[in-house]
Design a protein around this nucleic acid. Structure first.
Length: 309
DNA sequence: AGCCAGGCTCTCG
DNA sequence: CGAGAGCATGGC
């Protein structure tokens, strides 16, 4: 018997729902997907699994989100509140984009993009752990391959929820991956090395020796990078990517990233290949907004690619 | 077919 | 120390 609740979340303008969850168009239906104006995924509130389905209401200038929360168990008021907080964090809807738009107004290219992509926000993962594990998986290999492996990992180790004759998966918990064996992770397509990194980091969290969520409250991004860099399997690139996707910070970019270098080169260097150092120097012009600025560039380029077809 | 792909660590010299 | 090998697999 499915229990369901519906509620509405008010957002700070501007917010473009379609653009902000657009990168999940290619997502897996059992994990996280945007399709026909709806976005859905499983969330975890205290041990309870629930499916959230989001739809945009209002306009980019007066945005709201309709949320449907479904579970097989009774949904308490507390769980509903947690779901609300989680959705707010996932879509970063309490963030005011206007200072960013004003902050990059002197940059003609970005000004053009902020007009076209008005209301685009960087979506966030529910947990820092999820962003970190995905970032480790994405080291070196192509994103196409990485996404297959991430899906394999989630379906092999994630808790499942049966709802309306469908099966959905939540991201595996640190506890679950702490007790995973290398062979089964290898079966997901991971290298032995990466399997070891992930197990070891999961163990640190499960034992209470590492609190990734805690880093969200740090103001000093450089400090976070240095801390994470000490952990085996995590370099500067992985730390930066994790911060950008999970911590709602706008001033961190994975400058050495191949894709980001290509995007910056595309808009600012006539597609001539640039080094990570050059990318960092160009991005420094955008100061504390460099993370958001780079995200706008990446989305803009992705849309150009789609339009080419 | 083979080579490359949003890195990182370990091993040599 | 710095350079270089090795890693996983899907796509071109």
């Amino acid at each position: 018997m499915t229990k369901a609740q519906k509620f509405v979340i008010e957002c700070i303008p501007h917010f473009n729902f379609e653009l902000s969850v657009g990168l999940f168009s290619g997502g897996d239906r059992q994990i996280r997907k945007y399709e026909k104006g709806k976005f859905w995924q499983i969330i975890r509130t205290d041990g309870q699994l629930a499916l959230i389905t989001l739809k945009p209401l209002g306009t980019v200038d007066q945005p709201r989100i309709a949320v449907e929360l479904e579970s097989n168990d009774k949904i308490s008021r507390e769980q509903k509140n947690k779901a609300k907080a989680l959705v707010t964090a996932l879509l970063n809807t309490q963030f005011d984009l206007n200072p960013f738009y004003e902050g990059v107004a002197s940059d003609k290219i970005l000004t053009d993009l902020t007009k076209r992509l008005r209301g685009l926000r960087i979506p966030s993962t529910p947990t820092v752990f999820e962003a970190l594990v995905d970032s480790i998986i994405e080291q070196q290999i192509s994103l196409d391959v990485a996404h297959v492996l991430e899906t394999n990992l989630i379906k092999a180790f994630g808790d499942s929820l049966n709802l309306n004759q469908e099966v959905y998966y939540a991201y595996p918990t640190p506890k679950k991956l702490a007790s995973a064996n290398i062979k089964k992770l290898r079966g997901c397509g991971l290298s032995t090395r990466k399997a070891e990194y992930i197990i070891e980091i999961s163990k640190m969290i499960a034992r209470g020796n590492l609190d990734l969520e805690n880093y969200k409250d740090y103001d000093d991004a450089q400090g976070i990078i240095e801390e994470l860099d000490k952990i085996t399997g995590i370099g500067v690139w992985t730390a930066e990517l994790t911060i950008m996707r999970a911590m709602n910070k706008n001033d961190v970019i994975p400058a050495d990233d191949l894709g980001l270098r290509r995007v910056i080169a595309h808009f600012y260097c006539n597609d001539k290949r640039i080094t990570g150092e050059e990318a960092r120097r160009i991005a420094e012009e955008w100061g504390k907004w460099k993370g958001l600025a780079c995200f706008y560039l990446m989305v803009a380029e992705a849309m150009e690619e789609i339009n080419k077809r």
